[in-house]
Nucleic acid binder design. Structure first.
Length: 943
DNA sequence: TTGAGTCACCTTTTT
DNA sequence: GGTGACTCAA
């Protein structure tokens, strides 16, 4: 980092405070230093207070850091700056809506209000659940859109689309689209045609077919088109190119109905969210934007005298526009580095910074169309650069620029010259340059990395700069292993632990997707009900073939040692104990096992989960891929492992960029595309709906969509920027590593790749400090009035068991089904099965079952068959509660559930005439419970 | 040697 | 859905 005095470039920026500035601040150029000094300089003026200066960051941590550093270098203290607008776009939007936004929704024709109690939904999983609830109701209320829903494979695609639209400033009003945002939905044919033509150029001087024609070879493969779809030969033509008029044929399509559908879903979801008193991050900005657009007085009153936006390459389109609405003068300074834009999946738009001038002009024009909203001149924009790098050596900086032109695939054509022209070269501040830049591949990449780390540590040749500027030999804590994927980091961590090398993972980890967690889950399932899925995994782990395992499970002739182990486990009192014992048995002692253990212990420590509930918790965690934050304890001398995304903004003396493997990095398909205006933003009907001769709905693929998708080129620019970010984290040395199938980045970077055969037989790392972990456990779902013991999935809870529940797994369900179907099935002394059998036997009338429907019931003397078994029947001495757990409203609608529960209600009420019977649906995702007023028998018969 | 067609393999990041 | 290794033909 730069010293106390700014360098000339920095000084120039610190002192240039009036006017429009676009600052290209490369990695390690002292950006935060400069921004905080500039802020101090601005507020040092007479008549300028911190309230007049808006400083936007992208994370709350960054905002706090800014605040602290400003305090150190300005006359203002922490107290005076506590309320200064140094914050993220999201928290700023939140504050604005809190104070002024009560009626903002009316501008979009929504009669709901935003209040101080409106929650911000941060957890994606929770929002998905709310959206599912919403969409279930929407489907019920809008039968006219059935055909669109039939054509969707996942309704969650709609949520993704809505979030993307809100990030791009496309909002629905009561009967149309806000301002001119509809144009985004139609796409830009000219831009599309340019792409199309480019991709349709024949190659090798005209002798080779165009990329597009080759791509269209697969046209129609694994697809079902309607008969009017053109044939493959018609699409591809017979020359080297695809017929030029294909662009028009696939682009021109009447999307009016589709737009109406998206509009209505979008608008209804906004209303639903407000009615349910929540907003997501995107909607926060959406309403803040609407508020600032509509309320001219507020905007003028608010208009900041100075605005600075840090990390501008991470901003989205709506955030750019918010910046313009928030600025009262042209004293705007945006600081960033397009080369470090790696968050497109969070709707960051790299063109905000790359094409700043053009966008500024255009956005200001759009905002000023019907009123003077941007009252300051948008030119001239003064470009500034920070080019002195205080982090890395010159050879690392030079190497890093090659990352931006590295080929992502073997045959990728990219205009290296054009890219290089956009790169502002950085100059290292240090004269010293004895950097190693190396690359290695190995059949065992993990072990090769360990060997390399061992070779680096305490090796004078890899000296690193110490705090005092002198050079010293490196230790574990100087090294970071960066990877594209979490998976690789996690596995590497386990290998390191196996060999005793101190290493710590930092960031979110999918604890329950680890092998260790899956082993614990398997044994829990075995303990619970000798579940097949548990035994299968355990037997496979022990080396049995699939056929052998099947035979063992079939005959329930489990290996003796395993049965003995199971009985051992049964003796243990806590789940933590079970997990620990399983890890001992399997020799799992690595950090991943520790995290799993910690997580399980805290789950059990903070709640009173039953074993079945714990199983379900783990199953859900696996399905969600939910992550738990893992942090290395401060001050530990261990190698750090992180994903590249997690490492942004940090620096390490030595960087090992691992997992340079095909299909992993770059990931297949690249990371998001830059095609915002040519693409009609996902607004393509993928499939067409019709009915066959029997009236059965059929879903067809839409040939135009298929072709259109193939016209859009793959874009690996962001993957290259990731590579760039990784390399520029390094201060002194860089090592790239790959496995047996290295990626083409390795081929095209100017570095020799050595294939090595690691030998760790004599490996004896110094003992380092192993890190400790903290694990965040989510609160369990469920209403407070219910003890977790009543949450028994697939269970019948009998009063006469004295309050103890029994849990039925899928094998019990299967038993129930086959029993009803009249198959000869044995309960095998399984108490659960006997219990179910008793229940089924107790039902009056002839039982019958159909495929996928296995609990036969009699209502009013008539046989009724319904699919699915009720989740919980809670029987006590004076009441019976019927509870059905739902997480998913997409397949059924609430009305359907009401019908099902009503049937149960009558059956149960008949069986227990002396007790009060209630029926309710419990939505496990948001923990709400809805009581169902049962339909009466006459109404049921109608149905 | 070059190009068209065919086929097996793999699929992420998180404020 | 995309890549790259493969086969076969010119």
């Amino acid at each position: 980092m730069s010293g106390v005095d700014p360098n000339p470039e920095q000084r120039e920026l610190i002192e240039a405070i009036d006017g429009l500035y676009l600052v290209d601040a490369g990695a390690g150029t002292g950006k935060t230093f400069t921004v905080t000094r500039r802020y101090a300089n601005i507020v040092a003026q007479d008549g300028v207070d911190p309230e007049d200066v808006l400083l936007v960051t992208f994370t709350n941590n960054a905002a706090e850091e800014m605040r602290e550093r400003i305090v150190r270098h300005s006359e203002y203290g922490m107290r005076e700056l506590a309320n200064a607008p140094i914050q993220t776009f999201h928290s700023l939007s939140h504050d604005l809506l809190d104070e002024y936004g009560h009626d903002a929704p009316t501008s979009l024709g929504i009669d709901e209000t935003i209040t101080g109690s409106t929650r911000i939904i941060e957890d994606e999983i929770i929002e998905q659940a709310l959206f599912r609830e919403f969409i279930g109701q929407f489907i019920d209320n809008h039968p006219e859109y059935d055909e669109f829903f039939t054509a969707l494979s996942e309704t969650s695609e709609l949520l993704d689309l809505i979030k993307e639209l809100s990030a791009k400033g496309v909002f629905p009003t009561a009967d149309g689209w806000y301002r001119n945002s509809e144009s985004h939905l139609d796409g830009d044919f000219e831009a599309f045609e340019t792409l199309f033509t480019d991709r349709n150029e024949p190659r090798n001087g005209g002798s080779k077919q165009s990329k597009l024609r080759k791509k269209l070879y697969q046209y129609g493969e694994d697809k079902t088109y309607l008969p009017e779809a053109p044939a493959k030969w018609d699409i591809r033509g017979d020359g080297k190119q695809v017929p030029a008029d294909l662009a028009e044929r696939v682009f021109e399509e009447d999307r009016a109905a589709l737009k109406r559908f998206v509009h209505d879903v979008y608008h209804a979801y906004l209303a639903f969210a407000l009615r349910r008193n929540f907003l997501n991050f995107g909607f926060l900005q959406l309403f803040a934007f609407v508020l600032l657009c509509e309320d001219h007085d507020l905007r003028e009153q608010l208009g900041y005298e100075y605005v600075m936006v840090d990390e501008f390459q991470d901003s989205s389109e709506i955030q750019f526009k918010l910046t313009l609405l928030l600025a009262g003068t042209n004293n705007i300074c945006v600081v960033g580095d397009w080369k470090q834009s790696i968050y497109s999946f969070q709707y960051a738009d790299v063109d905000n910074i790359r094409e700043f001038d053009e966008r500024l002009e255009r956005f200001a024009g759009e905002l000023n169309r019907d009123a003077d909203r941007v009252t300051f001149p948008t030119t001239p924009v003064d470009d500034k650069q920070l080019t002195r790098n205080y982090r890395s050596t010159q050879s690392i900086l030079d190497f890093s620029t090659h990352a931006l032109t590295a080929r992502a695939t073997k045959n990728e054509s990219l205009d290296a010259e054009a890219i290089s022209e956009q790169v502002t070269p950085l100059t290292a501040d240090t004269d010293r340059d004895d950097s190693y830049i190396e690359a290695l591949t190995s059949e065992d990449e993990h072990e090769a990395i360990l060997e390399k780390i061992d070779a680096i540590v305490d090796n004078d040749a890899y000296a690193v700069e110490g705090d005092d500027g002198t050079y010293r030999t490196p230790e574990y804590g100087d090294i970071a292993v960066l990877t594209r994927t979490r998976d690789f980091g996690r596995d590497l961590l386990d290998t390191a632990s196996e060999f005793g090398l101190p290493m710590a993972y930092e960031g979110g980890i999918e604890v329950f997707r680890t092998d260790a967690a899956k082993l614990v889950l398997a044994w829990l399932r075995i303990l619970e009900r000798d579940a097949e899925r548990g035994w299968a995994l355990v037997l496979e782990e022990a080396g049995y073939t699939i056929d052998e395992a099947k035979a063992i499970i079939e005959r329930e002739a489990y290996p003796e040692a395993m049965v003995a182990f199971r009985e051992d486990l049964r003796e243990l009192e806590t789940f933590g104990g079970v997990a620990r014992r399983v890890f001992e048995q399997y020799g799992r002692s690595g950090p991943t096992a520790d995290v799993v253990l910690d997580t399980i212990q805290s789950v059990h420590g903070t709640t009173t989960f039953t074993r079945g509930e714990l199983i379900r918790f783990i199953e859900e965690a696996i399905a969600d891929g939910s992550t738990h934050d893992v942090d290395a304890g401060a001050g530990t001398n261990a190698v750090t492992v992180q994903t590249i995304h997690a490492t942004k903004g940090l620096e390490y003396p030595i960087v090992i960029l691992a997992n340079m493997n095909a299909n992993k990095f770059p990931s297949s398909g690249g990371s998001g595309s830059d095609i915002a205006y040519t693409d009609p933003i996902g607004l393509r009907q993928r499939k067409v709906y019709s009915e066959d001769a029997h009236g059965v709905p059929h879903v067809y693929d839409d040939w135009k969509t298929d072709v259109l998708n193939r016209c859009l080129p793959q874009n690996y620019d962001e993957e290259r920027r990731l590579l760039y970010v990784a390399v520029t984290r390094a201060e002194s040395h860089v090592v790239l590593t790959g496995g047996t199938d290295p990626n083409s980045f390795l081929d095209s970077l100017p570095v020799d790749v050595e294939d090595i055969d690691p030998d760790l037989s004599a490996f004896d790392p110094e003992p380092g400090e192993h890190s400790t972990y903290t694990v965040d456990i989510p609160e369990p779902d469920g209403p407070a009035s219910y003890s977790p013991h009543t949450f028994i999935d697939d269970a019948v809870f009998e009063g006469n068991t004295g309050g103890r529940g029994m849990e039925f797994g899928s094998d019990v369900h299967e038993f129930a089904e086959r029993y009803v179907l009249g198959e000869a099935v044995e309960t095998g002394d399984n108490p659960d099965k006997e219990h179910v059998k008793a229940l089924l036997d107790s039902l009056e009338g002839e039982t019958r079952a159909e495929i996928d429907a296995f609990l036969p019931l009699t209502v009013d003397g008539e046989k009724v068959t319904i699919g699915g078994i009720i989740d919980l029947l809670h029987v006590t001495s004076d009441r019976v509660e019927i509870i059905d757990y739902k997480t998913d409203l997409t397949t059924h609608a609430e009305g359907e559930y009401r019908k099902q529960l009503s049937i149960y209600y009558h059956v149960v009420a008949d069986q227990y005439p002396d007790r009060s019977v209630t029926a309710s649906i419990f939505y496990t995702d948001d923990g709400t419970r809805h009581n169902i007023t049962p339909l009466d028998k006459a109404a049921l018969r109608e149905l």
